[in-house]
């Protein structure tokens, strides 16, 4: 785990409202795993006060660069968007538990919605590393409100994956969400490994579609303060043994959870 001011090597818009930031971070690039996140201080000011958790979108180990894909959602990310190449950004990480990787040959489905595609990009890069050129068993479903709002779509295609797209407005691919699309393409037969990240309604409908799937993993999002399991703010409900509600902490127990362990209703 590192706490460092890192040099920004890139901070560019990829699609409207979404930016890609590259940080010079050799140790971090070596240590980061897909699904883990960085806890980023967006400015030195006291308002906003807290760090922002942003998932690792790619760790380029050869060049020692870590990338974050982020959506401008409020004051913190607006300040982050103004950071220039050559500036320094205060980062903690890599934090949390990431996705468990498949073994070569496992059937895989990857479902991403909107900015939720960010950690899946890193995951797909790792899957590509494991599978080599033969990625036929890997189905990728990416969606957003509109076709032009699907981040890094071309880059995922460039990795060699066949990508199915879903859009709310029908502007590209299937009209509807990625879970409906996956149902249609897979005919309700989900492979051994399912990975997802996206808005809560998407994860809920995936939960309904998958039932008790033993290996499906999803990445959760929640407002965070410390990022290291100390403040106990970022909870999500998990299936309880008794009557009392039980919570897990997104920063430390997650952000990646087994879907069947979560109580998303």
């Amino acid at each position: 785990m590192y706490s460092k001011k890192l040099r920004v090597v890139k901070n560019v818009e990829v699609i409207p409202g979404h930016r890609l930031m590259g940080l010079e971070a050799h140790e971090l690039a070596m240590a980061a795993a897909p699904g883990q996140f960085l806890h980023v201080r967006c400015s030195e000011t006291l308002d906003p006060l807290l760090r922002r958790p942003i998932s690792v979108c790619l760790a380029d180990r050869e060049r020692g660069t870590v990338y974050m894909l982020y959506r401008i959602a409020g004051k913190g990310t607006e300040l982050l968007a103004r950071v220039k190449k050559g500036d320094f950004v205060d980062v903690l990480g890599p934090l949390g538990r990431g996705y468990s990787l498949p073994q070569k040959g496992d059937g895989v489905a990857v479902l991403g919605g909107g900015i939720g595609i960010a950690p899946l990009y890193f995951l797909l890069e790792c899957i590509k590393g494991i599978y080599g050129p033969d990625t036929d068993g890997v189905s990728v479903f990416l969606g957003a409100a509109a076709y032009t709002a699907i981040p890094v779509l071309d880059q995922v295609r460039a990795m060699g994956f066949s990508v199915h797209t879903a859009t709310d407005d029908g502007s590209g691919g299937f009209k509807g969400n990625v879970v409906q699309l996956a149902e249609e393409v897979l005919g309700g037969r989900y492979p051994d490994r399912v990975y997802a990240c996206g808005p809560l309604p998407m994860l809920k409908s995936l939960g309904q579609a998958l039932g008790d799937h033993p290996a499906a993993e999803v990445s959760m999002e929640e407002h965070m303060a410390c990022g290291v399991g100390a403040c106990l703010s970022c909870i999500c409900r998990v299936r309880a043994k008794g009557e009392e509600p039980e919570y897990a902490h997104v920063c430390k127990d997650g952000p990646v959870f087994k879907l069947r362990d979560l109580c998303l209703a």
Partner: peptide
């Protein structure tokens, strides 16, 4: 178990 979510909200400073 503590309170239900959301448990924090950022305010000015």
């Amino acid at each position: 178990p503590g309170n239900p979510a959301p448990r924090i909200c950022e305010t000015p400073a």
